[in-house]
Structure formats: structure tokens, C-alpha cells
Design a protein around this nucleic acid. Structure first.
Lengths: 337, 337
DNA sequence: TTGTACGCGTTATCAG
DNA sequence: CTGATAACGCGTACAA
């Protein structure tokens, strides 16, 4: 029951600690099967577990990976975590998850703590370019990958073709005949949301439409709600593209309160395809990213980097998932009036 | 930029490592301010960070806390994580978050890994009584608290008065005049859901009503959906109590598909008050638990236990939050017929 | 095939 | 007030 050390095992098995260590680490190498068995039995019996701190001290590997996310409350990120965790576990790593509350300062603090904790690498889903830059400063002795948030080009990490996603959204609405559309973006400071908007605009421009109403949100449900309310009151649009699903939820709420029907009166299209939107009525049409797989991939890339020094990046493509919240634009009274 | 050790600092500052260590650990104790300054300057200059593995090896403290949750995908748990993390950070601990997928086997595996990782303690939100029992076996050398899931009495941890919650739900529906109600529970194996049902039944019994339709769900949106569908098709009830919000979402979907209006045709009441239900239309009436605070409290209790050996437990009380999904039962045609 | 002895970076004990 | 030095638990050359 107490905590046994390798010494205890050695003594009890009547061998040296070296031998025990060998049994522990090297799979099948030179040693009599007999000795091996003996040691194994003692280990089993005492429920011995090696101390990773001590092991890490000599091997320089903590088998810990840090994962920093901006807002664990957005269901997008738990999926990312799940993926990263599953993959990390496969390779014997554990995940230290940190929630930065989208604060650059907190990010910096976490990076520092994680380094102290001797993590073998960090997966950073950064809100601010700031701390990814600071990661960079330390990159000589720290492996890291960026996840989902890329502020600069050519950095190791996992990203999404955000512009393509925006483009898909625009294209879809256009095909449904919409002419006057609004977009509720994420923070201007985040490249992801800039790109989504850019793609959206490009789709419109291709058919000679000017991008219309644009409002800057902050990826929160509340910001989607308030912007939608304002838009529905003051502007004459037949569709709204929100740069994430959470804001689309806000649009739903606003529309409901104002008696505006989705999709009869207004089409709504989101971005992310977070699990919970299956609860929305009508079902939300959205731009899907494979969040879980992106999480996995980020861990895979990081571990590749840790174990084989390969720095690489992967770009995922979003897909359009058509459900019930978008429809052909109304002809007749509304538009003619 | 390289990784400096305490030795490097000592050499560069022209003192012994002992002195450096003193500066690092003991706040203001005996040493000339001059020496102190000198060391501090070098530390600053080299951006030296102590190695927690080495430190942990001698102090027997990793400053790591393990947190095991069953399903990070249920928005209930990220909130719990946030709370636990914030509190842990306050005391200089980091959180290793593990997602057990509600599998007892995975829980066991994680406990083992966490112990190897030398965590100072574990917060377990267990799905199965199994692994909490196994934690118990190791409790001599492992601090732990249970969170949200209590299978036995008198264990350190943070819990909710689940029965009271169920009672509140029942009482609320009764006050609205409902007579025939259904309950979609969580897994029978989980005490939480048994208690919620028990409380619900008690409320009904108090006014001479028999508990009516009961279906065993599994806390997932899908199970809420399918049970609701079946209930709405075959049973004549005016209200449904689901033992968590996720399942209530499923009920919403089922109701919508079948053209059943909430709350005009059927009242729905959930449990948890997860953040995202503000996206539901109409707003969900539910039994609220202060998830974030429960997370915080669990970390606080664990740290108390680690640092002062106090084992304790805290019980939170749920509250009824009336919103829009419950209404007075229809009189007239329906009930008279 | 097995064991001895050293080092990993840090704290703690005990002299000076 | 400061500095050797012995742990902590483990992996690994090197020796036997």
C-alpha cells in the first residue's frame, strides 16, 4: 500500500535495481526469463508504479503535454480537447489543459507554468498573436504547435481553410437567391474571423453583389443576440451568416423574440458545427469543421515534433452542412415593396 | 535561451546553489539584501525557471491535480473544469484533465496514470462506483475528492442535493396543475439520477399523485429525443421532467418534429442549467446547480486535504429557475376528453 | 546475464 | 549569513 521504489522491488526480488529498471523499460532484451519473471511477479504483487518525476528528471521527458484553449465554455473546445487527449494517450502522454479566458496575459502565465512543469510540448489555441510570438521566442527549447488559431504563416500546427468556409457560406446563400445578407463576424483581431469574412465577401463579389451589413461580434452567444436584434430591427436582409455557431444561437433567440421566422423570414448559417446545435430548432445549417480530428491531429503533430523533430502543419477543409435554417429567399411582397 | 539550472545561476552570481535555492523559496529570511539582489538579477536576466520535476522529487509534491470527468462533451463538465482550474491555480496547482468517456475501465487507467504522474491528488467525477472504490483502496497514499457523483455516504467531495432538485421539479409542475407527468431519468446505475427521480416521486406522492411514466435515459441528447418521441406518441402526459438539460434538448427536438408545442401542449423541465440552454427556444425551465462553484469547491477541498490533511465534504443545494418551457396545464378538451 | 556507481535539478540538513 | 553535501527515484554507461 505504501509507495514502493525501484529499490524495494530490487531487494524483494533479490536482484539489483538495474535489473528491475531493465525489466521495466526494455521489452525483451537480454536477461534470463527466470529473473524477469521473478521481478515481474514482485512488481505485480506490490503494485509498484514507477515515479515519473524521477524518470523525467533523467530522461528529460515529462510525458506531459500542455493544451491552452481560450474558452472551454464554447463547446467547440471540449471537442478539440477530447481529440488531443485521445491521441496523446495513445502515445503515453497526459494532457494538462489550461483555460486562458481569451486573455493574453493568462496565456503567457500558463506558458510559463507549463514550462516549469517541464511539459514536453505545448498545443496552443491562442486568442492573441502575442503569446504565440512569445512561444516562438522559446521555441529553441520548447516544442509547440498552434491549433485552430494561426496569426502568421508557416508555423507548425493545425488549421482550417477559414476563407473557404466563408466562401461556402456565401455561395450557399447566393444559390438560395439571397441578395441582401448580413455577417456577424468574430473579433477583428482574430485571423480566423477575418478570413471567414473575406471568403464570404469573395463569394458575393463573384456574382456582383456587394457585401452588405457587417457587424463585429466576439464569438459569444450574447454578441450574436445583440447584433442580430439590431440588424433585424434596422436592416432589410434576408440572411445572416455568423462566424461561429454560438453566435448563431444568439440570432435564433433574437429572431424568436421579434417574431421573425427561421428560415421563412430569414436564413441563418453558422460556422463550426458544434455538437449541441442539434438542439436548435430548426436545425442549423452550418460550415462544419472536424473539431475532434483537428484535436487529434494537433497532438499527433506535436508528438512527431517531440519524438522525431519533425515540424509540420496540416490544413483542414471545412464542409457545408445544409440543414433547416436556410431556405430560398422569399419573393413577393417583402422584396418588391 | 537554453535551459538554465540552479547551478548556472549560482556560478554566474558567484554564490552557492544553496543560496540560490534560498532566494527562490524562502521569502524574506536571513541573507544580505545584497546577495539577494545579485541572485535575483541573474535569475531575471537568464529567465531562469526552476524545474518542478526535480523539485517535486525532493518535496514530494508535483503541484499537479488530476481531474477525471465522464464526458467533456456535456457542457456541464467544462464548467466544472473551469471552476476547479481557477481554484487550483490560485494555490499554484495545475490541472491534468482526463475524459473517461464514462468507462470504468478508462477511469481506472487514468487513476493509474495520474498516480504515476505523481499528482498530489485527484478529483473524480466518476460514472461508476467501481473506480471510486479503487481510489478508496489507494486512499492511504492518495488524496482525493469526489465531484458530483457520490455512490456512498461519507466520502470527501462536493455533491448536490439531487433529491431536493427532483422534488423542486415535481413541486413546480404540480403547482402548475399537472397531473400526468413523465420523467426521463439518467442511468439507473447512477445515484444522482436515482435521487432526482426519488425527489420527483416524493413531490407527487405528497399530493396523492402516482408517479407516472418513467423512462431510463443515459443523459445524452439522443436518449432524451427517443424517449420523448415514444412518450409523446403513446402516453397522455402534460409535462416531462428530464434528469438533465441535454435530454431536455432532445425532448425539444422530438416535440418540434411531432408538432407538439412547448409549453402550450407540454411542459418541459430540465436539470443542470448548462450555459448553452439559453439558446433553446422557448427558454428552458430547469433545476440549476452552480456548476462553476462546485468545481471550485472541489479543488479547494482537495487542496485543504493535501496541505492540511482535512477531509471534508460539501453539499450544494439546487434551485428552481422558472423560464418559459413550463406552463399551467391546459384545461378543456384535452383533459376532459 | 547482472551489478556498481554516477548524474539528472532541486531541497534540506548541518557545519562553518 | 553562507556553503558543502546528502538525499529524492530512476536510467544508464561501464565494469564484472
Amino acid at each position: 500500500m505504501a509507495k514502493w521504489t525501484i529499490k524495494d522491488i530490487a531487494k524483494k526480488a533479490g536482484v539489483s535495481i538495474t535489473t528491475v529498471s531493465r525489466v521495466l523499460n526494455r521489452k525483451e532484451e537480454g536477461m534470463s526469463a527466470q529473473t524477469r519473471e521473478k521481478v515481474l511477479r514482485v512488481i505485480e504483487e506490490l503494485e509498484y508504479q514507477p515515479n515519473r518525476l524521477a524518470r523525467g528528471l533523467v530522461t528529460k521527458q515529462s510525458k506531459l503535454i500542455g493544451l491552452i484553449v481560450p474558452t472551454i465554455s464554447n463547446p467547440f473546445f471540449p471537442e478539440l480537447c477530447r481529440g488531443a487527449e485521445d491521441e496523446a494517450n495513445k502515445y503515453g502522454y497526459s494532457l494538462v489543459i489550461c483555460n486562458s479566458d481569451a486573455s493574453a496575459e493568462k496565456e503567457e502565465r500558463y506558458i510559463k507554468i507549463l514550462k516549469e512543469q517541464q511539459v514536453d510540448g505545448i498545443i496552443l489555441s491562442s486568442q492573441s498573436g502575442l503569446s504565440s510570438a512569445s512561444l516562438d521566442r522559446h521555441s529553441k527549447n520548447l516544442h509547440y504547435v498552434l491549433l485552430d488559431r494561426m496569426e502568421r504563416e508557416k508555423v507548425p500546427g493545425v488549421f482550417l481553410e477559414n476563407e473557404e468556409g466563408g466562401y461556402l457560406a456565401g455561395q450557399h446563400l447566393i444559390q438560395l437567391g439571397h441578395k441582401k445578407m448580413a455577417c456577424i463576424t468574430g473579433p477583428e483581431s482574430i485571423k480566423n474571423s477575418r478570413d471567414r469574412l473575406k471568403g464570404f465577401k469573395r463569394a458575393l463579389k463573384e456574382v456582383g453583389l456587394e457585401p452588405t451589413i457587417i457587424r463585429e461580434g466576439d464569438f459569444s452567444l450574447e454578441s450574436g443576440y445583440s447584433h442580430a436584434k439590431e440588424i433585424l430591427e434596422n436592416e432589410n436582409v434576408s440572411a445572416i451568416f455568423t462566424c461561429n455557431d454560438l453566435m448563431a444561437c444568439g440570432v435564433y433567440r433574437a429572431a424568436h423574440e421579434m417574431g421573425v421566422g427561421i428560415p421563412q423570414d430569414i436564413s441563418v448559417i453558422g460556422f463550426d458545427d458544434i455538437p449541441l446545435i442539434s438542439a436548435l430548432i430548426p436545425k442549423l445549417t452550418t460550415i462544419r469543421q472536424d473539431t475532434y480530428m483537428m484535436g487529434r491531429k494537433s497532438a499527433e503533430l506535436l508528438i512527431q515534433q517531440i519524438e522525431h523533430g519533425k515540424t509540420d502543419f496540416t490544413i483542414f477543409s471545412p464542409t457545408l452542412v445544409v440543414r433547416e435554417s436556410t431556405a430560398y429567399v422569399k419573393t413577393g411582397e417583402e422584396t418588391i415593396k
